[in-house]
Nucleic acid binder design. Structure first.
Lengths: 287, 287
DNA sequence: AAGTTATTTTTCAATACTGAAAAATGGATT
DNA sequence: AATCCATTTTTCAGTATTGAAAAATAACTT
């Protein structure tokens, strides 16, 4: 006995509802004969008579009546399947983006308004948790990072460069002794940063005047005229600090990390495109 | 855009599970090319890419992954549909039979053991509620009655005759005065019974020695040598009472009432056949 | 870097499905 | 009892679906 053909359930439901082959066939947009054969086939594969044939139309048997709600359950399942697919095909839902706080605050969030206009039903969640270095599926869908990913599970692309400069307050600049700068340096655990390494080479053994562990505190220190610091242009440009020099040798690449490019859903891809475009159009502000 | 073909969901599930067209096609017992086309058609009608094609096989997209559980829900619904149909096609379940207590006790129940042997998975529920005169669908599936049904919603067939006789104890018989019997009559509300009417005609104005409202009490009264009573042979044959005369003029027809014959489920029909056969084979004991 | 392998995609004849029209059915009406 | 009528069932030519084999593809191996 051949397995049931799921599509025949449509025929069963229509015929049960309309009662006559003629009307049911019209509702299904198929020939009268086809419908009759589908019902026949279904009854065969279920080994159960579903209808009684009268000249006035088809009438459900007891078996048919008892099976009707089961068929309707199938219909409901099929409906949610197609409906979910439609949802899936549209730009709807939430996408989680992991990134550095700097980029989030000064680059992404300011552009969010414009993004919402183009994709009103697509929402972005931003995660700036420092521990989300490796892009696990549950952590985030996308990441905008400044370290080259090592995990082989993800793919990535260079989308731009984050530029750094030597900054200080105007007052410090006026009083400055070029050969003997007061450097604000990164503290324990951040020695690997390109900015930290550059300062270390400038200090050549001398002591820094202050060490901190965040960009925000270094900005504060500069404004308080403690000394000079290496800051991203992106951050410093919003302050009253002055740029003494651009330091291109410690520029950092910005990578858009994605979960293996190809399998991504439409909405993830849309956000990825938005971020990639965003970095590219603002490349001047980053350098 | 054409509506989704439910059967293609099978293809989606198989391919998602086996990962390769070749194996999935084998599992579905169809050609490799057919499966490929079904997937293509499904993706088109859902307007969503479900798989990524690689030489190593098909891989679910994010959309496909998200839709997988929806498709599985459909599969589950289809499974219960077919399983229920199988149940429906077998002689399995319960059938509710409404009947008189006499017939239940002395005719149906004694034969139940034999019925269980032929249909071990089919259970009979017996309802002897007096109020279940009209066979509503929720009350009972079948009825074995001694009144001709009036409700047009049901069909019925004469399956036999219930015979009555004039009964008394042996002692009463020995002392009997034929012209002056002590009749045990039916009480208020039962005057319409054929037996009651027959006794009334015999009494011709005289008073009965006792009135009761059940067969069991009349049997008791006879055994206590109160008088003579009209009893169904079926009941009296199990007692020590003696039959003074057979009263064929008040025989009652036994009707098997069914919910409109044709639409009945297999199990109801099986029980109907059993009951019909039962009455016919025991017709001698009824008369 | 070329060859091997397992896979998908294409091709085409055979098969199955489809629908319009004709025939048959059986209940309803006169 | 004969006719009508709305329906199902059958018929048959056209269409779509199917599967085996051939061609193409790209990952993997030597």
């Amino acid at each position: 006995m051949k397995e049931m053909i799921w599509d025949d359930t449509k025929a069963f439901l229509a015929l049960a509802r309309f009662g006559t082959l003629t009307i049911a066939a019209k509702s299904l947009d198929m020939g009268i004969a086809t419908l009759s054969r589908k019902i026949e086939r279904l009854e065969h594969s279920l080994q159960t008579p579903l209808f009684l044939r009268f000249q006035t139309g088809y009438q459900l048997t007891d078996e048919g009546k008892n099976l009707l709600n089961k068929a309707e359950a199938m219909e409901a399942a099929a409906f949610t399947f197609t409906k979910s697919a439609k949802k899936e095909s549209q730009l709807i839902g939430r996408v989680k983006v992991a990134t550095a706080e700097n980029l989030a605050t000064h680059l992404i969030i300011p552009a969010l308004g414009h993004f919402q206009q183009t994709c009103p039903n697509l929402h972005i969640d931003i995660v700036t948790d420092i521990h989300t270095a490796n892009l696990h599926r549950r952590d985030a869908d996308l990441a905008l990072r400044m370290v080259r990913p090592t995990n082989g599970n993800v793919s990535f692309q260079r989308v731009g460069t984050l530029g750094y400069g030597l900054y200080c307050s105007t007052h410090y600049q006026n009083e400055r002794d070029d050969a003997n700068d007061n450097f604000i340096q990164w503290g324990d655990g951040y020695e690997h940063l390109p900015a930290a390494r550059w300062i270390a080479s400038q200090l050549a053994g001398k002591e820094p005047i202050l060490t901190t562990t965040s960009v925000a505190t270094q900005v504060s220190a500069c404004l308080a005229e403690v000394g000079v610091a290496i800051l991203p242009h992106l951050v410093a440009r919003h302050t009253e600090l002055v740029c003494l020099a651009n330091i291109p040798e410690i520029n950092q690449e910005i990578y858009l990390v994605i979960q293996t490019d190809l399998t991504q859903s439409k909405r993830t891809r849309a956000v990825a495109d938005f971020l990639s475009e965003l970095v590219k159009t603002h490349q001047d502000r980053l350098n």
